[in-house]
Design a protein around this nucleic acid. Structure first.
Lengths: 218, 218, 218, 218
DNA sequence: GATGAATGAGTATTCATTCAT
DNA sequence: GATGAATGAATACTCATTCAT
């Protein structure tokens, strides 16, 4: 599969979770902030070093290359994105075997909103680089596709079988949901178009209502 | 307003549409191709010069700075995006005074699909830089907001008055439509996730159906 | 053959003999001096730039890489080493069809002494890098072997047929001559062991006498 | 004399030959291998540390500087080169008072061939650095001159007095022998030009015959 | 004695920009 | 208008060396 490299990297990194130095900690934190703010390509290692109050060499002693620093920033996020979503959200909700598709959507949305809210800077980085960085896109997209979309499709099929959803190809449904939710996250956390005073609860319900009333079989 | 600079630039440029030299033509064409492919930050002026078979100095003789070359690439697209959309699409459709919201949506979607399809490279550039380039985002987003969203809101209100749409704040409706359509364009033209063999007609209808059946008051 | 790359480079460079800028001239001259003095690996491009009173960027505008600058320094020397030696020296002397092996040796020695004397700095560079630079050695040595040694062997065979030379494998003879003459040049021009006041004429005659008749008193 | 420093270093080191730690042993071994392979300038201390499976700090704890590590590698070889040659080879052969110059040559050649064969990596290092490293050359060359050449001259004079050698200045003879033998070792152990299947015995005899009687057929 | 984290000066190279021709 | 040589600041990265543990 095309995500071998990424998976390997994730696994390798998980194992490497020795003791992170204070400086390492500081470097990653600073890199996250700057990458999120100005993009990977527009952030120089010397800038990171200065902001992290660390010698530039220290960055390379620990991460070898700037590319690798980006990975070190992104991978834990990816790692947490996928299995969490897959195992915790999906199986949990599904195994309850109760609730309609709307409940599933609500749970999914809230779970992911919470996760991204707590990692908004890394989310910004991932989204930006996904568009800007060919290499990364080629590795991440199939990885996402294989892991998330695949499971969503299964859920959708389940609910379709129960007669809760309209008869559009599952992959089309899934894509529209994904676009809508993803677009919501992007416009909120990356573009930051908001009037700050959003009633989050209400927005979510509107979103769900929008999605549901489009999909519900009548 | 925050778009003064942009508007000024557009106006200035429109006036400047004297005779473009062959070389200028070639430079812009090449820049479009390369910016779309690898992103603005990852494309060097020397690269552009080489690919356009032009001396590097020539680029700067005409455009002064690389930033300005980006603007020269983007602005005509922006210029055409907005007024066209506003004047041609909107007033045209609305003045007909015929058709339901679905028809409006369909017309809008097809019109924009056509436009972006013919300018997909510049669309890629705009989307990528919108996320990556702080300056540009700060200039373009309010410009979009003021020009497009504002008009869509008016249309939505019209249809709401006619009782065709559910009772969600217009700006929320508008945002969800925008996210969905925008997301569709981005995933299709920028991320290029597609199975190439899409039945475009069907996809559009699914999209409209999805949007409508969520929004239609029942 | 293994010298394709080198030959190609030589040919390419010969064609490129456009007009060298003053700065280019200065860069090459300075590089020659510094490489000869301290070796390629121990000379930094910034050093060269400073000594040549040129911006560091200028070096890279013209030569692209430091490696390529080394080649630009070495190749003309190599180019002149080989064909000169082959065509001028060899055929000239041989075609005269007069003279014994000793005369040939004397002509060869004087010709090469003259050549190296006029290019002693580049000779130093070539010798030093031949030992130090794996890549270069792998390209240059077979090139030398194919071009020079091969011809010397032919000459040796000619004289062997005339009964002037002892019956040792030609390639052994050639190697000993080469070692002796080469060693003479290296110790004189690279190691610079000399008492400066050498009677060159006498030294050459001693060398020839040694090669021809050895050390044993008869 | 200019070799004070070197002699002092040798003496100092000889005294220091206490207990070498395992790690020290490993460091020197690894350094020898890597210096021989890629040259001193192209080998980094971190590389050595990694290959020797030692912390980088350990190298500096024992050797202080990289330069000093090079000396620690080279000096024992130098130390063994000189006195061995002087005392064992020379006096031994000479004291026997038997044998002609040819026998002396043969003994010398075989002795040195054996020594270098057993230390070929260090020999490579010494030769390469002798050309590349100004400092080292300035220290080593006079040292060699004072110790080896000086004794060879004495031997040559002895045989000249016996009427075995031609009437060329002793120092010229010595230099030619040295060039020839040195060149043989360099081309064999450093340049490694060989067809691997050399008949060593025969080669040596050819070399001796050449030195003694030259190339001319009689 | 041994470690390895930290350093900062140094390296080759890139790049937007200037300017004389 | 067009060129392309020249620039120098900036970039990612290397490396010998130091030092607290």
């Amino acid at each position: 599969m095309s995500d071998d490299k990424l998976l390997d990297a994730i696994i390798a990194q998980t194992k490497l979770t020795k003791k992170q130095t204070d400086k390492q900690q500081k470097i990653v934190e600073t890199a996250i902030k700057l990458f999120a703010e100005k993009g990977y390509a527009n952030t120089s290692t010397s800038e990171i070093a200065k902001a992290a109050m660390v010698a530039e060499g220290t960055i390379f002693r620990h991460y070898g290359t700037k590319d690798n620093l980006l990975l070190s920033v992104i991978l834990p996020f990816i790692k947490d994105s996928i299995p969490t979503m897959a195992e915790e959200v999906f199986t949990e909700i599904m195994s309850k075997n109760v609730g309609c598709f709307e409940d599933f959507l609500r749970a999914l949305l809230k779970n992911r909103l919470h996760f991204i809210n707590e990692n908004r800077e890394i989310f910004q980085i991932v989204v930006k680089e996904l568009l800007y960085n060919d290499e990364l896109r080629k590795e991440l997209l199939p990885f996402f596709a294989d892991n998330i979309l695949h499971r969503i499709t299964k859920v959708i099929n389940t609910y379709k079988d129960r007669g809760e959803l309209i008869d559009i190809p599952s992959h089309t449904i899934q894509r529209m949901i994904f676009t809508l939710i993803g677009g919501y996250f992007v416009s909120r956390f990356v573009l930051q178009l908001d009037n700050c005073d959003i009633d989050e609860e209400a927005e979510i319900e509107n979103l769900i209502r929008f999605i549901m009333d489009g999909l519900r079989k009548q």
